[in-house]
């Protein structure tokens, strides 16, 4: 293992220390327990958005804390969900009297820990609602699995709901908008290489030079199938076709198209993927109203990419365009 770290035990804490030093105008950090809150929290009279998950997906979620997006982010250890005390303590700090909305990616651990935190916050008299993301079409949604994983759609949801909270939208309406976004977005990802969890010290799986994994999640886990390496255009088709046919997206739909890097893929390659993804979307008769290209929800140093399409209406687009001022996403300010 070759990593720019001091020791595996200190990875999360030292990264948080760096974030706090780098972004004093956006956020504050607690170390006992770990959480990041926006600098001006609590914002009186507005719904507070709390998210979180295992570390190793940076900039998600801590990089999205700030005006117009998350009120708090709770980082767990690398690829391990945070614990209920983190969301409980962070929730109390950011609660501005209008309730808390938890944004939870659908993983067994995340769901259980956020459920416990919600129970604890409700006992304190704070209103809590939860929206989930489960947009990964690579996982079959059936009674016999834990359900689909939450992946790229989480970023788009955090941006849109963050803008809604900033505008003063009440909790029940934000929850309803979140549920609508959940039903309107789909994603799929692939990996060229595995990644190495610092405390594991070795790659989570092995891929030969001429192989790739299609249908991966964001935790360095193997995907649905291993296939021979292919040119970018073919790989993009393998991702886009299942995404577009799953919802399904219909001719004439307006979408936000998001091409995401898994951490180890350069932007130059992501634009090659976006070029083909946009062509496929247009071939399906979709109108791309906005796009996002870059590494926003990653798996450490894994090379690879994911695509996310979200069907939007005018309200969602207005909220997407609204000002946001966070370490990783900033416009209109």
């Amino acid at each position: 293992m070759k990593k720019l770290i001091n020791s595996p035990e200190d990875v999360v804490r030292e990264a948080l220390e760096g974030m706090e030093l780098a972004h004093p105008n956006h956020l504050r950090v607690s170390y006992e327990p770990f959480y990041i809150v926006r600098k001006d929290a609590p914002v009186k009279g507005k719904v507070a958005l709390v998210s979180g998950g295992g570390s190793g997906h940076e900039p998600m979620h801590g990089g999205f804390v700030g005006m117009g997006m998350l009120s708090a982010a709770c980082p767990g250890h690398v690829f391990t969900s945070p614990t209920p005390d983190q969301m409980f303590e962070a929730g109390k700090v950011v609660s501005g009297g209008a309730g808390i909305l938890q944004i939870v990616k659908n993983y067994t651990g995340d769901v259980m820990n956020f459920e416990l935190a919600a129970e604890m916050l409700k006992e304190e008299g704070i209103a809590v609602e939860t929206v989930m993301t489960d947009d990964d079409v690579a996982v079959e949604d059936s009674l016999y699995t834990a359900g689909r994983r939450g992946v790229g759609l989480t970023i788009l949801m955090e941006k849109i709901l963050g803008a809604a909270a900033e505008k003063g939208m009440p909790l029940k309406d934000i929850k309803a908008l979140g549920d609508k976004i959940r039903k309107s977005g789909r994603s799929m990802g692939m990996a060229l290489t595995a990644c190495t969890v610092p405390h594991a010290g070795k790659p989570s799986f092995e891929l030969a030079e001429n192989e790739m994994e299609v249908g991966i999640g964001i935790h360095g886990e193997p995907g649905r199938r291993r296939v021979p390496m292919a040119p970018a255009d073919q790989i993009t088709e393998m991702l886009m076709e299942p995404v577009l046919t799953d919802l399904p997206f219909n001719k004439g739909d307006t979408i936000i198209l998001f091409v995401n890097g898994m951490g180890g893929t350069p932007l130059i390659e992501l634009y090659i993927v976006y070029r083909k993804a946009a062509a496929i979307a247009e071939k399906h008769g979709l109108k791309i109203a906005r796009c996002l290209v870059g590494s926003y929800i990653t798996s450490l140093e894994m090379a690879g990419a994911s695509v996310t399409a979200l069907r939007v209406d005018d309200q969602m687009l207005q909220l997407w365009d609204a000002p946001v001022n966070t370490p990783a996403l900033r416009w209109g300010v």
Binding site: G54, G76, H77, S81, Y107, G109, M112, N113
Partner: peptide, 12 residues
Amino acid sequence: LLSTVGGASGPL
């Protein structure tokens, strides 16, 4: 265990 393990194993 609830506040130190994380993942699904923590709550379980």
